[in-house]
């Protein structure tokens, strides 16, 4: 066990001082790259990711590194590539391109977005999304999905609703058959190491689940509580993303129709 979260029971506060249903500090920006069709930068606590969308563009021969949805030529292909920077976590492990974990992430994001985007409007074309992970502190998949949603909105690709994701965990590990287990939302790396958790992506504020990934052992009975907590957290994330988009839109309206990329003077205080 890397650390002890058993103090949770004393004050109902987590290792970083949050309550069970509190998200970490969220910070998001869109249109960060002038050259891209769409781009975003998202921080969920200390997890920091960057996303660049290009397309829809003409169908090219797809590279090996990116996962894509083979939907035939009647709909656009969503090609996702995830690059995890070597300096993003404490152990500087070099991950090759063939890393199956990364490939699984790519496939997941690609399939989730493909069902949300109106890809049928762009037959024979590719929407390519490249995600860069700058810093990892838990909830990686959730941050990647949220960042792609932001960037896709910036790129102006029609979609059904925001695809938002968040993690939810459960206090006390699987070994202890604790009935008083509380759900937790938006786990950081320390909590992910120790507690069972799942990542859930929902379509906007609805209860429709696009992605549900759980990689740890947990009792079936806890699933419902964790999913409910995650769904609530997703609503919070949706409100935040909506706010980011609206602020940007407001800014663009007040400053007049600005040339794309001219709004680069953004506060990168990270």
């Amino acid at each position: 066990m890397p650390l002890d979260t058993s103090t949770y029971d004393l004050a109902l506060l987590r290792v970083d001082g949050r309550r069970w249903n509190e998200l970490r500090r969220l910070d998001g920006q869109i249109r960060t790259q002038a050259a891209a069709d769409g781009s975003s930068y998202l921080e969920m606590g200390n997890t920091k990711v960057m996303c660049v969308v290009s397309g829809p563009s003409e169908d090219k021969r797809r590279g090996q590194t990116s996962a894509s949805t083979a939907t035939g030529s009647n709909a656009a292909d969503v090609a996702v590539s995830v690059v995890v920077a070597g300096f993003s976590s404490v152990d500087r492990k070099k991950r090759g391109r063939g890393d199956k974990r990364i490939q699984e992430l790519q496939t997941t994001i690609s399939k989730a977005l493909a069902s949300n985007l109106h890809t049928h409007l762009y037959p024979r074309s590719t929407i390519s999304i490249s995600l860069n992970v700058l810093s990892q502190d838990g909830s990686l998949l959730a941050a990647l999905i949220n960042a792609s949603t932001l960037a896709l909105i910036d790129a102006g690709i029609p979609m059904t609703d925001y695809l938002v994701a968040c993690t939810a965990g459960s206090t006390s590990s699987y070994a202890a058959n604790d009935d008083r287990a509380d759900p937790l939302v938006d786990l950081n790396n320390q909590e992910e190491q120790e507690l069972p958790f799942l990542t859930m992506a929902t379509l906007g504020a609805t209860d429709k689940v696009a992605v549900l990934v759980c990689e740890s052992r947990v009792q079936v009975s806890r699933l419902e509580g964790m999913m409910a907590a995650a769904a609530d957290a997703c609503k919070g994330v949706r409100d935040f993303l909506d706010q980011v988009i609206r602020e940007k839109g407001h800014k663009m309206v007040t400053e007049g129709t600005i040339e794309k990329g001219a709004s680069m003077a953004i506060e990168i205080d990270a």
Binding site: A112, L203, T206, K208, L212, V213, V218, Q219, L223
Partner: peptide
């Protein structure tokens, strides 16, 4: 023993959360 080891709903059309819980049981 009713311990979930892994769940993978990797994208695809969104499904109601309730039906996923039914799936688990």
């Amino acid at each position: 023993h009713g311990e979930i080891c892994q769940i993978a709903k990797l994208g695809g059309t969104p499904v109601e959360a309730v039906s996923l819980i039914q799936c688990a049981s």
